[in-house]
Amino acid sequence: MNSCYIHSAVSISAQNSFELEFLELFEISGKNVEAIAPNYKEYISPMVLRRMATGVKMGVAAASKALQNANIDKPNAILTGTGMGCIEDTEKFLNSIIANDEEFLTPTSFIQSTHNTVGAQIALGLQCKAYNNTYVHGALSFESALLDGLLMVQNEETKNVLVGGVDELGTEFVDYVRMLEDQNPNGIKVPIGEGASFFVLSSEKKHNVVELLGIKTSSKLSIHSLQNELIAFLSHHHLKPDSIDVLILGNNGDSFDDYYDEASKAFPQETINLSYKQFCGEFYTASAFGLFLGCEILKSQQIPETLLQHKAQKTSLKTILLYNQFKGRDHSFILLRQC
């Protein structure tokens, strides 16, 4: 079995994550928060750009920079995760069906509405004929893509795999989601967000890269079995709770944050607990931003100050565990190590 290293991590988010060398985070507020758009023309030709909705632009640009940073022209696989898919063009086409009563409809928004548009546009732009897959399983969309990538690098002799998570806000459906959350006193409190985070996984060991040790997903877990599951996952990788320096958690302010409280009880007091959705917003592939953050922390050996609740800095940051869930289901553990 090969080891799997993360050669690059690039994120477009509500933060200045795409352009900045080191992350300075600021808290976001509002119902929905857009990602900060880079200058897409630097990454995408105008004839292609003219058809692209936000998510496709974000995905293609983030993927392109991730490949650049890893010095790769064509990956051996392209794996994309998206929870809501191309909701902007889906809404556009659906609304034109409703408004025009099924007449005078044009194809562009339909063509660009399929969930695999981002993965397809990346392949088309690179002329990359390799394995290409798109995962669309709610809060496990990105994790499924990552798991497939890990499987390829560790077990199937694949050298370089491009993996990413992308979701766009859209303009209508998101308001209904927000409305229902706001009606519920136990609903999601952070803004709904959007973004694209892409990574290059590789079997090649390089200086100062992050190793992706493992990932596990569960459709359902009871809160009572959570600690046991976490400990079993760690011991599968020959680790104990006290070997984890930082725990990155997906708190979003809803009542299911109880799961994160329960998880952190499995770890000693010194373990640093961080949450990130107050910076990127909640969306199905927000956890890809969490992974980006984990990679940044391990590479820089620093934690952005706004993230720290106590000043208790650890001297060395070697091992990070990420835990995310959505509404008490779709749980994921991701394990990272500096090497």
Binding site: M47, R51, F104, L105, T106, P107, T108, I111
Partner: peptide
């Protein structure tokens, strides 16, 4: 101009509409 087959379909709808 560099248009393609998807553009052609768009223009067909314009002719009709």
């Amino acid at each position: 101009l560099g248009l393609d087959s998807i553009d052609a379909l768009e223009l067909i709808v314009m002719l009709d509409k």
